[in-house]
Amino acid sequence: MKINNPAVQVITISDDEAGQRIDNFLLARLKGVPKSMIYRIVRKGEVRVNKRRIKAEYKLAAGDLVRVPPVRIAEREVVPVSAKLDKVVALTNCILYEDDHLLILNKPSGTAVHGGSGLSFGVIEGLHALRPEARFLELVHRLDRDTSGVLLVAKKRSALRSLHEQLRMKGMQKDYLALVRGQWQSHCKVVQAPLLKNILHSGERIVRVSSEGKSSETRFKVEARYEFATLVKASPITGRTHQIRVHALHAGHPIAFDDRYGDREFDRQLLGTGLKRLFLHAAALHFEHPATGETVRIEAPMDGALRQCLQRLRRQTAQ
């Protein structure tokens, strides 16, 4: 255990850093510092911009001088991720596309997007090991640890701002493939159900449909039918935590091997297919390139476990 107690910093905001809120800037800058502490030092005026007090929602401008006070936190000794580790090297084979602005991965199931919560390794830590020269690598969106598929990472602050704006304006389309219990009814093309997130004492997030929750919408389309299951394409219009998983359950069709919202009997029916992971895969992402303005569509192939499961289900259904 070591104590991190840096000196006062005065940071000049670059063009690439402009436009973001001061609280988000500090969260990214002060890794490991709790959100509550970030908001406390802003509220007390210990963080200043151009020698003036500001609020957490203040948007930074190019040339702003940000005073960041010493922040004393206890942190665990972290062993640097070696680029020779199998998991890091494996990420190289997961890269679907890369240029000066973007890096797009086909994230494996079981890999977290960030280390933390007892995990020493995540996609971002792996990418920093693969790209030690990269000054900026930030997630544009997230995928649950057990969900595989397209994951978009920005390599420039300007790209992150552009892509976040597309998310806010619903200009980015995400298509997932999910294997669900039973026969999905063809007329059920949209699920609109407000979602409320609860965080348990253990830190686990559980989401449920509630009139007190945030409005949420997912569009569904049947892709293939099997004897006791359906493969559906799920396209979330909003981006709530666990949205597709909870909306599928709400429609009466939980997703295969979902350890929080699934059906154990359905999972047992699938044992003969060899499936042992959540069958939720981010199959495609459609957006506007932040630098060129061109339309980009990225598709991520399913892994061997998902393909084998569908092959065996097709054989069973054909018998």
Rank of each mutant, 00 (worst) to 15 (best):
T241I: 12
T241E: 03
H242G: 02
H242L: 03
Q243F: 13
Q243A: 14
I244S: 04
R245N: 06
V246N: 03
V246W: 01
V246L: 09
A248G: 05
A248M: 13
A248F: 04
A248T: 13
L249D: 02
L249T: 11
H250I: 01
H250V: 02
H250R: 08
H250G: 00
A251H: 05
A251D: 07
A251L: 11
A251G: 12
G252M: 10
G252N: 12
G252I: 11
G252S: 11
H253Y: 12
H253L: 12
P254T: 11
I255P: 03
I255E: 06
I255C: 09
I255S: 06
I255D: 03
A256Y: 03
A256M: 10
F257Y: 15
D258C: 13
D259Y: 10
R260G: 06
R260W: 08
R260H: 13
R260V: 04
Y261D: 06
Y261K: 05
Y261E: 06
D263R: 09
D263E: 15
F266D: 05
F266C: 07
D267P: 08
L270D: 03
L270R: 01
L271S: 12
L271H: 11
G272M: 09
T273R: 02
T273P: 04
T273V: 10
T273N: 06
T273K: 03
G274M: 12
G274A: 13
L275T: 00
R277D: 05
R277P: 00
R277K: 14
R277C: 00
R277H: 11
F279W: 09
F279T: 01
L280R: 03
L280S: 01
L280K: 01
H281T: 14
H281G: 13
H281N: 08
H281Y: 06
A283L: 04
A283C: 09
A283R: 11
A283G: 04
A284Y: 01
L285G: 00
H286T: 09
F287K: 00
H289Q: 06
H289V: 06
P290H: 03
P290Y: 05
A291P: 00
T292S: 15
G293D: 08
E294R: 13
T295P: 02
V296Q: 14
V296L: 14
V296F: 14
R297N: 09
I298W: 07
I298K: 05
E299R: 12
E299M: 10
E299I: 08
A300Y: 08
P301R: 06
P301M: 10
P301H: 08
M302E: 12
D303Y: 06
D303V: 04
D303I: 04
D303Q: 07
G304H: 14
A305W: 00
L306P: 01
L306I: 02
R307S: 14
Q308E: 15
Q308M: 12
Q308G: 08
C309S: 11
L310H: 03
Q311D: 14
R312S: 07
R312D: 04
L313F: 07
R314W: 03
R314E: 15
